[in-house]
Write a protein that binds this DNA or RNA. Structure first.
Length: 438
RNA sequence: GUGAGCGUAGCUCAGCUGGUAGAGCGCCAGACUGUGGAUCUGGACGUCGCGGGUUCGAACCCCGUCGCUCACCCCA
């Protein structure tokens, strides 16, 4: 039990996004929406809470996520529930549950939202973290893979990112992978003793991960291990060649990394990751791939899928680091009033401005003009409207441009129009231009 | 779950070999009865993370604990 008066702080691995940083988050979300919708994706919102079995069956009951990272608890009726660790399973669940496949064609869906994984927090990794993801359900055509990758690269470019790499691999399918794994295990048995202790353990638990080892001394050994790319069945090989061929056609740069491994069980064929050097140890900014058997695993009809998840926390970090976006949240108008006679006209004017969508601040108590201007300055207001006894009497208010310091008397009746004109088209909303609808 | 580093004012940090706290920024007020951003002057704000130990005396040394950060594992 916590002591009285003890400070209560946010749960470990969760954090508050303060107004200083939310503009950047909004910017990223707006750009994602715009790009996704340009590719004809539509938003889906699924619950944060799901039955535990959903993740056990899709992500894989032996994966780290399921065995030790999920927030799982018993509901009052002793049903086991879990805070979603990822969203692909939920999207596929919804697709099946509502029979979207009956509509025919492919479904292109995107989502935003928080995910939960109980790991030790570090840079770019949180227990509540945010993903922006998209899924295409209903076809295994390689062009889908390509189109989605093209879309992702466009999004990153739109956000001003330069330092990123698209890493590509194929992990085969249930037809070719088991055989490959057998070969890999066999090869590992022969060289195991030359590897680091971590890899010796991985050779048992998850042989694919050995390929991903970063220990310098292990590299010569790892390079001689068989890669799955050389052991794909003909269908998987053809699919992969199609994807890379079309990426070339579209001018999307990529790097084939035969050692790229994903941690979720449901992946088949194409897998990929986009990394950024600006991120520290957790350099995977987003990842995804194809999951052709997932729908069946969840009791649905055959419905091949391809998707990705962007780590929004990490994306925001790189956008910050690359300093491509300077966010300002300028206020359009500050209304300064002095004297009781000015109060009502000032309040009425502020209301009018706000109804026009012009961001406006007004003090709720009377103060010296000097003080008001100080506040207007701190809020970075573009304009200050000064209303005192004289202004009320004459019906002309002082309109001051805070940047230039210029000031003139404007007829109160024409004030809103005058401000609109001064703000110009880009600032109709009174906020930065990023809020323009698509 | 494992390891390392760090917890001093709202923020960034200083504080020599132990003598009960300082700077810059920010904040508030004034110089300037209705004109901001500069300058100057003054002011408020600290259980030195918490608990225990050593000591005449602890922000400083020791032990424990909590928190944060980074890394491992794994992933977004």
């Amino acid at each position: 039990m916590s002591k009285k008066n003890e400070l209560i702080q946010s749960v470990k691995g969760t954090r508050d996004l303060l107004p200083g940083e939310t503009p950047l988050w909004q910017r990223v979300e707006e750009e994602a929406r715009r790009v996704f919708e340009a590719y004809n994706f539509r938003e889906i919102r699924t619950p944060i809470l799901e039955q535990t079995a959903l993740f056990a069956r899709s992500v894989g009951s032996d994966t780290d996520i399921v065995t030790k990272e999920m927030y799982t608890f018993e509901d009052r009726d002793s049903e086991s529930l879990t805070l979603r660790p990822e969203a692909t399973a939920s999207v596929v669940r919804a697709y099946i549950e509502h029979g979207l496949y009956n509509e025919g064609g492919v479904h292109k869906l995107y989502y935003f939202g928080p995910m939960f994984r109980r790991e030790r927090p570090q840079k770019g990794r949180y227990r509540q973290f945010y993903q922006i993801g998209a899924e295409v359900l209903g076809s295994d055509h390689p062009t889908i893979d390509t189109e989605v990758l093209e879309m992702l690269v466009l999004l990153l470019e739109r956000l001003g990112l330069k330092e990123f790499k698209l890493l590509l691999n194929s992990v085969g399918c249930p037809k070719c992978r088991p055989e490959y794994l057998k070969k890999l295990r066999h090869a590992l048995d022969a060289v195991k003793t030359k590897l680091c202790t971590d890899c010796q353990r991985r050779a048992q638990t998850n042989p694919l991960r050995v390929l991903d080892c970063k220990v310098e001394a292990d590299q010569p050994v790892i390079e001689k291990l068989p890669y799955i790319l050389d052991h794909l069945c003909s269908e998987c090989r053809q699919h992969f060649e199609c994807v890379t061929g079309e990426l070339d056609e579209r001018g999307v740069a990529y790097e084939i990394v035969p050692r790229l491994v994903r941690g979720l069980d449901y992946y088949t064929r194409t897998t990929f990751e986009i990394t950024s050097g600006l991120l520290g140890a957790q350099n995977a900014m987003l990842g995804g791939g194809r999951y052709d058997g997932l729908s069946e695993m969840l009791g649905g009809p055959p419905a091949p899928g391809f998707g990705f998840a962007i780590g929004q926390d990490r994306l925001v970090l790189t956008v910050e680091e690359s300093a491509a976006l300077k966010m300002k949240a300028p206020l359009a108008v500050y209304v300064a009033w002095m004297g009781e006679a000015a109060r009502e006209p000032a309040v009425r004017l502020a209301c009018q401005l706000r109804r026009e969508g012009i961001s406006t601040e007004i003090s709720f108590q009377q103060m010296k003009l000097k003080k008001s201007l100080g506040i207007a300055n701190k809020l970075q207001a573009r304009h200050t409207i000064i209303i005192g006894e004289e202004e009320v009497a004459s019906g002309h208010y002082q309109l001051k441009d805070m940047e230039t310091g210029e000031q003139r008397a404007v007829d109160a009746v024409q004030l809103v129009a005058a401000i609109k004109e001064k703000l110009g088209e880009t600032f109709q909303s009174g906020r930065a231009p990023s809020s323009q609808a698509k």
